[in-house]
C-alpha cells in the first residue's frame, strides 16, 4: 500500500491515541464500561492497523512473533498465577482476600491483576491470529477488490 499516502499519514496519527485509549479502558474497567477483553481487542487493533497499512513484515519487526507467542501464554499464566498465589498462602483458588491488605483493597488488586492477564492474552491472540492470516501469500491484487 505504498501509494496510499493519506492512509499512511492518518493511520500514523491514529495509532498512538488508540493505544492510550486501550490502556485507559484496561485500567478503568472497574469504574466505567471496559475491562481486559475490550482493552485487549483495542490494543490489538492498533497493531493490526499498522500491519494492514505498512505490511505484516514491518509489524512483526515491532512485535516479533516470538513475543506474541510468549505473551499469549503469559496472560493465562498471570490469571492462573493469581489463583495459585491465593492457594499457596492458604486461601481458596482465586480468593483475592490474600492479596494486599484484604477487603476492598484486595478485591481491587485482584481484579486489576486478573484483567491484566485477560488483556495481555486477548491482545496477543488477536494480533497472532491476524499475523497468521496475513503472512500467507494472498492471491489477490489491489485492483481485484
Amino acid at each position: 500500500m505504498d501509494h496510499h499516502s493519506i492512509l499512511r499519514v492518518v493511520s500514523k496519527l491514529l495509532i498512538p491515541p488508540i493505544i492510550v485509549y486501550a490502556l485507559y479502558v484496561q485500567w478503568h474497567g472497574d469504574f466505567g464500561p471496559g475491562g481486559g477483553f475490550q482493552a485487549g481487542v483495542i490494543f490489538a487493533v492498533a497493531f493490526i492497523l499498522y500491519g494492514l497499512v505498512f505490511g505484516v513484515e514491518a509489524m512483526t519487526e515491532v512485535l516479533p512473533t516470538s513475543v506474541i507467542r510468549v505473551a499469549m501464554s503469559l496472560g493465562v499464566l498471570i490469571y492462573a498465577g493469581t489463583g495459585f498465589y491465593a492457594l499457596l498462602v492458604g486461601h481458596n483458588f482465586l480468593d483475592y482476600e490474600s492479596i494486599g491488605h484484604g477487603g476492598h483493597h484486595a478485591q481491587e488488586w485482584g481484579i486489576l491483576l486478573v484483567e491484566l492477564g485477560v488483556g495481555i492474552t486477548v491482545a496477543s491472540v488477536m494480533i497472532g491470529i491476524f499475523v497468521a492470516f496475513a503472512s500467507r501469500t494472498p492471491k489477490l491484487k489491489d485492483e481485484d477488490w
Binding site: 477483553f37 481487542v41 491470529i129 497468521a132 492470516f133
Partner: peptide
C-alpha cells in the same frame, strides 16, 4: 454475553482458518 462475544471471535477465527 461479554465473554461469549470474545469466545465467538476466537471460534470464528478458527473456522476461517479451516476455510483457508
Amino acid at each position: 454475553i461479554l465473554t461469549a462475544i470474545v469466545v465467538g471471535i476466537a471460534t470464528t477465527a478458527l473456522a476461517l482458518a479451516l476455510v483457508v
